[in-house]
């Protein structure tokens, strides 16, 4: 930990994530084509098409670059939803304690035990696949571990001198929670947030693979699914299905590394 109380973030994680963010924000810098432009189908990689073309002639490299923003958005958006719900529930539970705590935690425990992926599959199968529905479902099913961690930290913070002072002086619970407790929660919430992002990205890829994704938005997962169903696999077009998969792995690794470094920042002594 350096002086200002910021964790020393993992270099590689940041660099990787930065690269992906660039791909997401300024895709035209990396590729001169449009992802929907059509050329000759099933072409092998060449100097004109770095990763060849798919079954309807789109340039795969371009698809890859443009897919970044979708996969990252799904990841971060779900994590934001999950974090928001987790914060609200964890804070309320930890601050008010007593019966409120018992009920909320009981509820959280039950939700924790329900296996998510089967539930997501069945929900996604009934609902028409759409990217925002996917994000919503993923977010709403991942808040429990955040809630638990927020609650236990809130219980701790609640007993510190400054929070007790604040209660004593008559600040409203809302003020105390937002101004005193939440800023001191970042250390525990940040790694969980990153974890949630990573999990959401993997889940989205898996769901897209079995056809429950949103085919109109070409995320990396959808690319792999198309490769599988439109003959890319049989034709051994590894340049179609490997790159998106590798991208997913790399993106998740970068997020995981950053998440771990938030955790490490908390520990005082570390002899590696």
């Amino acid at each position: 930990m350096n002086k200002k109380g910021l964790p020393s973030l993992n270099r590689y994680g940041i660099i990787l994530l930065f690269v992906f963010l660039c791909m997401a924000l300024i895709p035209s810098f990396f590729s001169q084509y449009d992802p929907d432009e059509r050329f000759m189908a099933y072409e092998d990689p060449s100097s004109k098409h770095l990763l060849g073309t798919n079954d309807i002639g789109n340039d795969i490299f371009t698809e890859l670059i443009y897919g970044t923003r979708i996969s990252l958005t799904v990841g971060f958006a779900s994590a934001i939803i999950a974090t928001f719900i987790g914060l609200v529930i964890g804070l309320t539970s930890g601050y008010y304690r007593g019966n409120v705590d018992e009920i909320l935690m009981g509820f959280t425990d039950v939700v924790l035990m329900i296996p998510k992926i089967p539930l997501i599959i069945i929900l996604a199968a009934f609902l028409r696949p759409g990217i925002w529905i996917l994000i919503l479902v993923l977010g709403v099913l991942s808040w429990e571990s955040i809630a638990r961690v927020v609650r236990s930290k809130t219980l701790q913070i609640r007993e510190t001198g400054f929070v007790m002072s604040a209660r004593c002086m008559g600040f409203s619970p809302f003020h105390i929670m937002s101004s005193d407790i939440i800023p001191n929660l970042t250390h525990v919430v940040a790694p969980k947030f990153m974890l949630a992002t990573a999990a959401a990205m993997i889940s989205e890829a898996s769901l897209s693979f079995i056809g429950l994704g949103d085919p109109s938005v070409k995320s990396w997962g959808v690319m792999i699914s198309f490769a599988f169903t439109k003959g890319g696999f049989i034709r051994e077009m590894w340049w179609w299905y490997l790159p998106p998969g590798i991208c997913i792995t790399l993106a998740v690794i970068s997020i995981a590394l950053i998440g771990f470094s938030f955790e490490k920042g908390k520990q005082t002594v570390k002899i590696e």
Binding site: G161, F162, S165, C168
Partner: peptide
Amino acid sequence: MMFQDPAGILN
């Protein structure tokens, strides 16, 4: 009320 624990007395 004033509490012990100067380390935790301010946010």
